[in-house]
């Protein structure tokens, strides 16, 4: 992690574009509406705030899947200046009243009104105005800048490698088109531990023995599964942390297959306005990689430059 000013990459934080080439793709819905999480709260006397906060930091925070850096943990109780309301932990950490009670008992601090009715945004707001609005509506927040700025700043990009991979898939796709493949879609899978050995996969649905489901991403995952099986390596997930480069924006089946495979990042060249499932403006706006209802995510970027030509496929084709 580097400070924003020291990042060697050119990042346009407003437009979310890196090096004038990579556009970060996110769900529009996630930008202006908070993703809410239920939390446990208690009421305490103002004088007990230090011991209980110390206790929470030590005993509960390390295991809590939710972070509270964008939140003020303590707020005054309405119409009672001597009482404070404190967030103990997320509902994700403990879903039963008895569990929370038994942990709090260890603190020896007197508390009242244990409740799971409060909700807080899981992430900070993207603008100061929204931060104030969410503070009024849900729970007092702190302003530490647009959380996405930090996300963009923390991403790592090997631009040389990205260019090389995009060049390769673009060339392969052109070769496929020249050979008469009516769906010249190509995907490259890159294992972070073997960056110099990318695995290329081609859409095979038009070949005799194949089915209409043999899109490049599906054939690629199967290819990798076969190789891993032979090598006798055992990994929790097949394509864990892989980078995936593909010529055309994936369909609902393939974008979901990438979630199941636990990839880290997908970079695509050509948006598919009708069948694509990553961009907010594509298809039914599923934004599969950034869909709150699916509990797994991956990073997605669209290449904006025109360096890499790719053959066109019919607009209604699922890629």
């Amino acid at each position: 992690m580097v400070k924003k000013a020291l990042n060697p990459l050119k990042i346009d934080y407003k437009k979310c574009i890196i090096e004038d080439r990579l556009l970060q793709i996110r769900s529009k819905q996630n930008l202006n509406e908070p993703d809410l999480a239920r939390v446990w709260t208690i009421e305490i006397e103002a004088k007990s705030s230090k011991p209980i906060i110390d206790f929470i930091r030590r005993r509960l925070q390390p295991d809590d899947p939710l972070t509270f850096t964008h939140i003020k943990r303590i707020r005054k109780k309405a119409r009672d200046s001597k009482k404070l309301v404190i967030i103990v932990c997320s509902y994700d950490l403990f879903n039963s009243r008895s569990s929370v009670c038994s942990v709090l008992a260890e603190s020896n601090v007197f508390f009242e009104n244990l409740s799971d009715e409060s909700e807080i945004p899981r992430q900070g707001a993207p603008t100061k105005e929204l931060m104030l609005e969410w503070s009024r509506k849900y729970w007092p927040l702190t302003w530490c800048g647009n959380p996405n700025d930090q996300i963009l700043n923390d991403y790592t990009f090997d631009m040389n490698h990205i260019n090389k991979m995009l060049g390769s898939i673009s060339n392969l796709a052109q070769l496929e088109a020249d050979k008469g493949n009516k769906v010249p879609v190509v995907t490259a899978f890159v294992n972070p531990l073997e960056k110099d050995k990318p695995i290329y996969a081609i859409d095979r649905r038009m070949e005799g023995k194949c089915t209409p489901l043999d899109h490049s991403i599906m054939t690629g995952i199967k290819l990798i599964a076969g190789k891993e099986k032979k090598s006798n390596r055992t990994q929790a997930y097949l394509c864990l942390n892989y980078d995936v480069y593909t010529t055309h924006e994936p369909c609902s089946m393939c974008s979901m297959a990438l979630i199941h495979s636990r990839i880290k990042r997908c970079i695509f060249l050509q948006p598919m306005q009708i069948t694509g499932c990553l961009k907010s403006s594509s298809g039914d706006a599923y934004c599969m990689h950034d869909n709150r209802l699916l509990n797994s995510k991956y990073e997605v970027f669209q290449w904006l430059g025109d360096e890499y030509k790719i053959p066109t496929v019919d607009a209604k084709t699922c890629c």
């Binding site: 609902s252 069948t275 039914d284 599923y286 869909n291 699922c318």
Partner: peptide, 13 residues
């Protein structure tokens, strides 16, 4: 439950 793909527009078939 999450998405109703069987009646959507963007998936072919």
């Amino acid at each position: 439950t999450v998405i109703r793909v069987n009646g959507d527009r963007c998936t072919g078939g």
